[in-house]
């Protein structure tokens, strides 16, 4: 469970101070599939980075699984991300010198999982995303959609408490996007995986249980995605 209270993030740029987030409070329950939406520059990525322990707020508080993250040292934050969180990025960011399989189990190696165990886990997750026949391939032998699915497998192999994704479909055509979003939904439904995803495509809303819309660093709407959004599309900004 994620609880954020009055989160603020400002960037001190010398002459100007940018208020990226101006006081965000939210609670995300286990098993929710949450979309964070809003116009460019509205603070979506900033919020995701704060919740995912990649950045520190300038105000407010974050509780992850009952822990006030402010109390964690940098080292503990790193361990926390390694053991309890998962990430998918816009550009897949697979390690180029590693095969599909190695990319997926890299973090398991660091977690100290035994070889048999992480190889079995890797095979299982790659089977699930339909890339088990690509174990030994390198990233440049895969399509963008396939690479993003490998990145999802990498994030999921450890069954993280929360999976964060920042515009995972931004580099994909609509068919690949659908594949990837289907996969996220499948993971969410079958494994009760908590997912927090940033998106700026209206039609993605149909996948989310809940949509949080930001404008200028504030939440302007939070709730079930209204049907008309993904049927007609709507200018929410």
């Amino acid at each position: 469970m994620i609880v954020a209270e009055n989160l603020a993030r400002t960037y001190d740029m010398g002459k100007v101070i940018v208020h990226a987030l101006r006081g965000i409070s939210l609670t995300i329950q286990k098993g929710e599939f949450v979309g964070i939406m809003g116009a460019s520059g509205s603070g979506k990525s900033t919020l995701l980075h704060l919740l995912g322990l990649l950045d520190k707020p300038t105000g407010g508080q974050i509780m992850l699984g009952g822990i006030d993250v402010k109390t964690l040292s940098d080292r503990k934050r790193t361990r926390f991300r390694l053991k309890r969180l998962g990430y998918v990025f816009q550009d897949y960011a697979l390690v180029p010198e590693l095969t599909v399989e190695e990319n997926v189990y890299l973090t398991s190696m660091i977690r100290g999982t035994s070889k048999e165990e992480y190889q079995a886990q890797t095979l299982a997750i790659l089977n699930r995303i339909g890339l088990a026949d690509r174990l030994a391939h390198k990233h440049n032998e895969l399509s963008g959609g396939q690479q993003q699915r490998v990145a999802i497998a990498r994030a999921m192999v450890n069954k993280p408490e929360i999976l964060f994704a920042d515009e995972p479909c931004a580099n994909l055509d609509s068919e690949s996007s659908r594949n990837v979003l289907d996969l996220f939904r499948q993971i969410n439904r079958e494994m009760a995986q908590t997912i927090v995803m940033v998106s700026h495509e209206d039609w993605h809303m149909e996948y989310f249980d809940r949509v949080i819309i930001l404008r200028d660093g504030l939440i302007i709407s939070d709730g079930k995605p209204p049907e008309e959004f993904y049927q007609k599309g709507c200018n929410y900004s």
């Binding site: 995912g52 790193t78 991300r81 390694l82 990430y87 180029p96 890299l106 973090t107 660091i110």
Partner: peptide, 16 residues
């Protein structure tokens, strides 16, 4: 650089 940033985001220690 970006690669290294991503690895750190995934929880890979700087020393590794």
């Amino acid at each position: 650089r970006r690669q290294i940033g991503v690895l750190k985001a995934l929880g890979v220690e700087k020393n590794i």
